[in-house]
Design a protein around this nucleic acid. Structure first.
Length: 808
DNA sequence: AGCACGCCGACT
DNA sequence: GTCGGCGTGCTC
């Protein structure tokens, strides 16, 4: 009996965002399973696309002609039922397409590649064939790069029936294979062969001896490369050995191991403090009883959260379960990875953005084949194809990088909670400064609250000194370094201790300004100014990537007095060098860490005490742990505070608390100097006193008053268009459309232009809706998307972001 | 997305 | 007259 399959096709549009029914050809009946990728004809002509099988049914519910599946891509399913369900849920929650959500849960190499080619099917004039096909009988048809004249002629040929258009669906994923050899005979047989060999056949002797020794081994599959190197014979000898039937050659898959060259010593469990012990016991209990429960593990820097994570992971493994641990990208340092690997060895798979597509795919396969049972990774690692998860950990749970800023705009924390329900396992959300959302849930008892209030070594938190830059400016003028900070740096240099200096990301760019007329070089495509990049000696736009030369004379008034301003890390570094000519300085920012591994190199250098001062952006706030750092300086604590985002206080508090924790972790006492223009701001004051609880209460009061999360949910709509009026009109229309479906408790903010209204010559307008419970909202938003399709074709872009992390 | 169909302007 | 512009509809 003919079976049918429901398939999500790889055509990411609203109109095609639904399962299509295809018949399963007889030949493929026993091959096709749910979760496999297939190639199907779609649309007019012979267009082929990839699709995912999401259901297999016995009777066709579609009244119309069904087409048959063309071919199967996979030997076994690549998406299990859990991830299939998860992707459907994500598509629904984030207003994205099912195909996009499906592709997101898989490594990017598994995405299909499409090619067209023109195949000659009839005899044509030889000179014409030379011209059009370069002597071949088919040619790739690439309408983007092809010569227009050539294309026209090829199409004419197709129309005349002399050639046809062929669609090809490719697959980028390749296993890296390696040739290995294996003995074919037993010990005795090799003995006989040896006796039969000529005396001077030295290489053959070596080979047979080697094969004979392998017969004793359990694992007798040895890479050919290794054999050649080890016993010094040629591959020719091995090949003739194969011909003689002494051995066989086998192709095996090898994994690209990015950590191949790092030697890792194994470490055991550490002794727990009483607080840690309470936490571990509570989580272990939940793992054992398969209780889907969320713990908020709130522990100050240095309180040993990581040890709690590692011991609960050990518990899960002990029970035959797997573990997933998420870490923010910037905290996923070699130190961090080493710590996990040293505990669990080869059971660990690591997924982070630094991996090549191939490496990422290999790690994914190790997980899928259950060779790796512990997964450590950044945001997208939440989709690791683990089975039977025992514990999920989200470290630094407050980090905004857990939210994906492109569609599907998911938050890893939400995915984690979904998966924990599916696997009946507990979740640990860990942080020194939990997000208000999570902390409030702990308050309400939705999460179980675990605390680690003490540092492991019983050390006090470092002393934080605030420097009022308004006062300082009067004395020191334009310097980035206040007198108190300079004095402290001098002291460290004398005592041969290390200093870390942090420059807040926002407002840290250098721009070019004319001293005579005040002209600032703007980006031609965006409403921003270009920033100076000394490494490439160009002016760049951070939003659209536009790049141009550094002007020598002012384009506006032709003055020669055009200089660069602002506090880029490079400029600060220069000032540091003049202040402390003898100090060894390392700079860490986007420019110096662009190359792969550069980040690690800088940290390793600093760790080896090859520098006195480490200067960097926020990337230095996370995960670095150097015992000789006794001074942490924050050059501009409050640049984020002035931003029109309700989370700016929270971010400032979190950042300051986090960097403070970097000072004096071992036996030496640390000190923190924070330069600020708002020394009285509560975020800065509470950070100075390491007082999360007071900050939490104060901030909650403000959120309550202003109707922001966690008291309200938020949704942000953004429209962009090539003309400003179009974008504004669309958002106005959206408000008109949504309003009737909302209760009077919902609050609509906007439409307003985005703070950078024009990016890459598109204009952006937004609307934010704050609400507590709106039954119809999501459905209405979906309708809005559907009815806007016609405009999308004309260039409108409409995005819906549920619980956005950036409001500007 | 990508392709066909269909209806209007300026050319071999 | 026809080639080709892009607005519209459809894809199991």
């Amino acid at each position: 009996m003919t079976q049918f399959a429901k398939i999500i096709v790889d055509v990411p549009t609203m109109q095609t965002d639904q399962p299509y029914t295809y018949s399963i050809p007889e030949l493929l009946t026993h091959q096709i399973e749910i979760g496999m990728r297939v190639v199907v004809p779609f649309g007019n002509g012979k267009r082929l696309v990839q699709g995912f099988v999401i259901e297999i049914i016995d009777n066709n519910q579609f009244d119309g002609d069904v087409k048959a599946i063309q071919s199967v891509v996979d030997l076994k399913p690549v998406v299990n039922t859990e991830l299939l369900d998860l992707s459907a849920w994500i598509a629904n929650e984030t207003f994205s397409f099912r195909i996009t959500a499906l592709q997101m849960v898989l490594p990017s190499v598994m995405r299909a590649t499409y090619k067209k080619r023109i195949q000659l099917i009839d005899e044509i004039d030889e000179s014409l064939q030379d011209k059009l096909f370069q002597g071949n009988d088919s040619i790739e048809f690439d309408s983007e790069h092809m010569d227009a004249e050539l294309m026209k002629e090829l199409l004419q040929l197709t129309k005349a029936g002399k050639a046809e258009l062929i669609y090809e669906v490719g697959n980028k994923a390749k296993f890296k294979m390696q040739l290995s050899i294996q003995p074919e005979l037993g010990f005795e047989a090799y003995e006989d062969i040896k006796n039969g060999l000529r005396k001077n056949a030295k290489q053959q002797h070596l080979l047979v001896n080697y094969l004979q020794s392998l017969t004793e081994n359990e694992n007798n599959l040895i890479p050919q490369k290794q054999v050649v190197k080890e016993i010094g014979i040629t591959t020719a000898t091995i090949t003739s050995g194969e011909k003689n039937g002494w051995l066989k050659k086998i192709e095996t898959e090898v994994y690209r191991d990015p950590y191949k060259d790092t030697v890792i010593e194994s470490t055991g469990m550490q002794k727990l403090t009483p607080d840690q012990d309470i936490a571990v016991t509570a989580v272990d209990e939940a793992i054992k009883n398969e209780i889907n429960k969320t713990f908020l593990l709130q522990g100050v820097t240095g309180s040993g959260k990581t040890e709690v994570y590692l011991q609960t992971i050990a518990k899960a493994l002990e029970l035959g379960k797997t573990a997933l641990m998420l870490v923010p990208e910037i905290a996923l340092t070699p130190q961090m990875v080493k710590r996990v690997k040293s505990r669990f060895g080869d059971l660990v798979a690591v997924l982070h953005s630094g991996l090549s597509d191939g490496e990422r795919y290999d790690e994914w396969r190790r997980i899928e084949r259950k060779e790796a049972q512990v997964v450590v990774g950044a945001r997208s690692a939440v989709f690791a194809p683990l089975d039977n998860i025992g514990i999920i950990i989200v470290d630094e749970e407050h980090e905004s990088s857990y939210k994906q800023e492109e569609t599907p705009r998911y938050h890893a924390r939400d995915i984690v909670l979904w998966r924990s329900q599916r696997h009946h396992c507990p979740v640990i959300l860990g942080s020194a400064t939990p997000s208000l959302e999570s902390r409030a849930r702990a308050q309400k008892g939705v999460y179980e609250w675990l605390q680690l209030p003490q540092r492991i070594n019983g050390q006090p938190m470092p002393e934080v000194t605030l420097v009022d830059m308004r006062e300082e400016m009067k004395n020191t003028g334009e310097s980035n370094f206040s007198e108190p900070l300079r004095n402290e740096i001098t002291k460290r240099l004398e005592k041969k201790e290390q200093t870390v200096l942090m420059l807040n990301r926002r407002g840290f760019s250098s721009f070019v300004m004319c001293r005579d007329c005040g002209f600032v070089l703007p980006c031609p495509n965006c409403d921003t100014s270009l920033t100076l990049h000394m490494d490439t000696h160009t002016m760049k736009c951070h939003y659209c990537g536009h790049e141009e030369g550094i002007p020598k004379i002012c384009p506006n008034c032709h003055s020669r007095k055009i200089r660069y301003y602002g506090t880029g890390t490079q400029k600060v570094e220069e000032e540091l060098k003049t202040l402390y000519p003898e100090a060894r300085i390392l700079r860490m920012d986007v420019d110096t860490t662009r190359k792969k591994g550069a980040h690690e190199k800088i940290l390793a250098k600093f760790g080896a005490k090859e520098a006195d001062i480490l200067l960097g952006t926020q990337m230095i706030a996370k995960g670095l742990d150097f015992p000789d750092v006794t001074l942490v300086g924050v050059l501009n604590a409050d640049t984020a505070l002035s931003l029109p985002d309700f989370r700016s206080s929270e971010r400032t508090f979190q950042l300051l608390t986090q960097v403070s924790g970097r000072a004096g972790r071992a036996d030496k006492e640390g000190q923190v100097v924070v330069q600020t223009f708002n020394p009285d701001h509560y975020a800065i004051q509470y950070a100075k006193h390491h007082d999360y609880e007071s900050f939490y209460r104060k901030e909650m009061a403000i959120r309550h008053m202003e109707n922001y999360p966690p008291y309200y949910y938020t949704i942000q709509l953004t429209a962009s268009y090539t003309d400003e009026a179009g974008a504004a009109k669309k958002m106005l229309e959206a408000v008109q459309f949504l309003k009737p479906a909302l209760s009077d408790k919902a609050i609509i903010l906007g439409p307003t232009p985005k703070s950078i209204m024009r990016v890459n010559n598109r204009f952006y307008y937004q609307v934010v809706i704050k609400y507590k419970s709106e039954e119809q909202l999501k459905e209405r938003l979906r309708e809005l998307m559907t009815k806007s399709q016609a405009e999308v074709r004309k260039g409108l872009r409409l995005t819906i972001d549920s619980e956005p992390v950036n409001f500007i």
